[in-house]
Computed example of a mutant assay.
Amino acid sequence: MDFALLIPIVLFVCIAYAIKVTVDAYTRRRIIESRGSEELVSSLLDGDARRRRQGSLHWGCVLLALAVGFGLVELVGANDVTPGVVALLLGATGLGNLAYYVLERRLKQP
């Protein structure tokens, strides 16, 4: 792999993420400074906390399923990238997303 190509890509992603974080923080600050209602500010902060928790749950499910997929690849003894190996890893990713969906639906129900 050519790491000289990877550096500009990572730099672009980092710059884009920094811009997103800055704009989000600026928007939140403007809402709070505009003397928005107490309910608006609390719902904004609660929504951010809920999104962070759901994001952690989502990535936890996906990464756990991928770890199982990679473990199965190692268990089978596949040394080359074949369509079967790729299918196994894509299937594990899909199962991780489905597991997140099921868990998220169960957490929403009282």
Rank of each mutant, 00 (worst) to 15 (best):
G36C: 05
I7W: 06
L88D: 02
R106G: 00
N79D: 12
G84V: 08
G69K: 01
S43C: 07
A65L: 02
G71W: 05
E33Q: 10
A18V: 08
L75R: 15
M1F: 09
L72C: 04
I7Y: 08
V73Y: 04
G77I: 04
L103Q: 00
A65M: 11
V10M: 09
Q54M: 08
R106Y: 00
L66K: 01
V85Q: 03
V23H: 10
I31R: 05
R50E: 12
I19M: 08
F12T: 06
C61I: 04
L6G: 06
V102G: 02
Y17D: 12
D48R: 14
Y17W: 12
Q54D: 02
V102D: 07
C14I: 07
A18I: 07
I32Y: 10
A25E: 14
V85D: 01
S43D: 13
L88Q: 08
D24I: 03
G91W: 05
H58V: 03
R28M: 12
T27N: 15
Q109M: 08
F3D: 11
Y26E: 11
V21R: 14
L88Y: 03
P83T: 10
G60T: 11
C61H: 03
Y101A: 10
E33K: 13
I31M: 10
L66T: 00
V62L: 05
E38F: 02
Q109H: 05
V21L: 15
L11V: 11
N97M: 12
L88W: 04
L64S: 05
A49W: 09
R50L: 15
E39L: 14
V76G: 08
E74L: 13
G84K: 06
W59T: 12
A4L: 14
A65K: 01
R35Y: 14
V102P: 01
L95H: 07
R52M: 14
L63N: 13
N97V: 15
P83F: 05
R30P: 06
L107G: 01
E74F: 08
V62C: 06
A67R: 02
T93V: 10
L11Y: 07
I19S: 05
A87E: 04
D24V: 07
E104L: 00
G84R: 12
E39H: 12
M1E: 13
L103Y: 01
A65W: 01
G47R: 14
L6A: 14
L6Y: 03
A99F: 02
